[in-house]
């Protein structure tokens, strides 16, 4: 019959529309504005449509999510910021669009480089959020941020400097708990190995 296929399509659309609200009636308000609610709505076996009510509720981003890079600093006992970055320049070398530029600190007396960046700029108008800098940083000093709400009325300040880029390690641990734990573990192991290597040497020299 002509028109049967067409009606079938309309029926499909109507069914989808109804199914969107069936769950709402069943579970009520619980489905909205909570993390569990969002998870229950975005599952693969959900019938009907899922809409995230941004900005009241935000879609939780996975741990690996990357937006712009930031620099990690360790907090000292007196609240001083100790940047992990040693200005080795690997991130600037690996960056595909070359948006990172680093000024290395030189010792004023000897003129030799000090492992500490003097300036660190990232032009976010060039950055392609690829995450290669974070992936290849040997000191876990540069990481990819989760903060995407950075729209602005001007792009004058879109070259981020060290002040804007630096974020504490506690923040890093809060957005990427698994990665941070794994890195901490690796670092401890490394230090243990180093200590173990030192001990026999010390013992030998003593003996």
């Amino acid at each position: 019959m002509t028109g049967k296929g067409f009606l079938r399509m309309l029926f499909g659309v109507f069914k989808r529309f109804v199914m969107t609200y069936v769950e709402d009636f069943r579970k009520g308000k619980k489905r909205y504005y909570t993390k569990e609610g969002i998870e229950s709505r975005r599952k693969a076996d959900v019938q009907g449509i899922f809409t995230i009510q941004y900005p009241e509720e935000k879609l939780p981003v996975p741990e690996e999510f990357r937006f712009l890079p930031f620099l990690v600093y360790d907090e000292g006992p007196n609240g001083e910021k100790d940047l992990r970055c040693t200005s080795c320049g690997i991130c600037a070398k690996v960056c595909p669009p070359q948006c990172i530029s680093i000024v290395r600190t030189n010792d004023p007396v000897t003129g030799k480089p000090i492992p500490q960046p003097k300036e660190f700029y990232i032009d976010v108008d060039i950055c392609m959020n690829c995450g290669l800098c974070a992936e290849y940083c040997p000191f876990d000093a540069i990481k990819m941020d989760h903060d995407y709400e950075i729209a602005s009325y001007s792009r004058q300040n879109n070259i981020y400097d060290i002040e804007r880029l630096a974020k504490p390690v506690s923040y890093y641990a809060s957005i990427r708990p698994t990665n941070n734990a794994a890195e901490e573990l690796a670092r401890q192991e490394k230090e243990a190995l180093k200590a173990a290597a030192k001990k026999p040497a010390a013992a030998e020299s003593a003996g």
């Binding site: 995230i52 879609l59 108008d125 950075i150 729209a151």
Partner: peptide
Amino acid sequence: YIPGCPPTPQ
């Protein structure tokens, strides 16, 4: 101006 490459829908 919205930075990001690409900015997520949010």
